[in-house]
């Protein structure tokens, strides 16, 4: 990918430098100020058009991007399309070019196939934001998680962060690993071996199958959503057994530091990967993550436009 296109897109945390991450998080602080006011909207990107091009259903992420775009005074369009270009007459690229021809300055893409944002970025003049591609990355989730961690813990350097659950299928885990490693955190993964192959060690993280051991002395407990459709595919025998071993209960949380924060990208499976009293407990920052998602996504859109001007 040429330099120019790396500049104006957000494809993954893999591609971002530590400096750029910090810049985005600082911007997000300013936007969070805006979100605290009665008038939660600024005219910054007035006249620009943002398109949510979602090939995979997602109400939460789409709504967050939509509201973030509106808070920046852009015009925002939601465009949902079936996931496979084979099923649909029109090809993926044609769909994206059509959306661009509507005048889109920023196209936010979610797709069930890894690499789709990268492929479209090569062909589009508009900025591309990856809102989740297959099992590859979900960069804005990692940014909002980093933002939330810094808000609670002041800094990331030297923090012990555990990411727990269905690692192998998780783009959230992957983006978070890239991001947190760049920010100097000590990252460990916990999950059943079927959902956490040992080659993940090559990402520079520690790998645990035993939850109690993995949680020892942890500052941040990041739970992942267990994809229930994985059940019956020999990854684990039953959700009951899964919860016994890798579910986050109050008792289990005692292994982590007393002031550990509990995070979850949502939507949660209560009683499967996380107990209700933990999700709603004092350590939980799950709802703050949602608020911070808006600020971070505003920062990302602002930043991409900022880079276009240079």
């Amino acid at each position: 990918m040429d330099d120019n296109s790396r500049k104006k897109h957000l494809l993954g945390m893999k591609e971002l430098s530590r400096e750029e991450i910090m810049h985005l998080l600082n911007l997000a602080t300013s936007f969070k100020d805006v979100l605290r006011r009665d008038i939660k909207k600024v005219p910054t990107l007035r006249g620009r058009t943002v398109v949510n091009l979602f090939f995979e259903p997602s109400t939460r992420t789409r709504t967050s991007f939509e509201l973030a775009a509106k808070r920046l005074s852009t015009d925002v369009i939601n465009f949902s399309a079936p996931s496979s270009s084979i099923l649909k007459g029109e090809s993926l690229l044609d769909t994206a070019l059509t959306v661009e021809a509507l005048g889109a300055d920023i196209i936010i893409i979610r797709h069930s196939s890894s690499g789709v944002p990268h492929m479209l970025a090569r062909h589009l003049k508009a900025s591309v934001i990856n809102a989740g591609d297959g099992t590859n990355e979900h960069p804005t989730q990692a940014l909002l998680d980093a933002f939330t961690i810094i808000e609670k813990k002041q800094e990331t350097s030297g923090l012990r962060v555990a990411i727990i659950g269905d690692i192998i299928h998780s783009r959230v885990a992957k983006s978070n690993i890239y991001c947190l490693k760049k920010l100097g955190a000590d990252v460990r993964l916990i999950g059943p071996a079927t959902l956490l192959p040992s080659c993940w060690k090559e990402m520079g993280v520690e790998v645990f199958t035993d939850m109690d051991e993995g949680l020892k002395g942890v500052d941040v407990v990041m739970m992942l959503r267990l994809q229930l459709e994985r059940q019956g595919k020999a990854f684990f025998p039953s959700t009951e057994e899964y919860f016994r071993q890798w579910g986050l209960s109050k008792r289990r949380l005692l292994s982590a530091k007393p002031d550990a924060i509990v995070m979850h990208p949502g939507p949660m499976n209560r009683g499967i990967e996380i107990a209700s009293d933990v999700a709603d407990g004092n350590n939980s920052v799950i709802l703050e993550q949602v608020t911070n998602g808006l600020a971070v996504r505003m920062a990302v859109m602002y930043h991409l436009e900022e880079k276009k001007e240079l």
Binding site: S30, V42, P43, T44, L45, Y302, E305, E309
Partner: peptide, 12 residues
Amino acid sequence: ISFYRDDIRIRL
């Protein structure tokens, strides 16, 4: 006033 400027097409 960054978020309110009218010259961001020129420079943010």
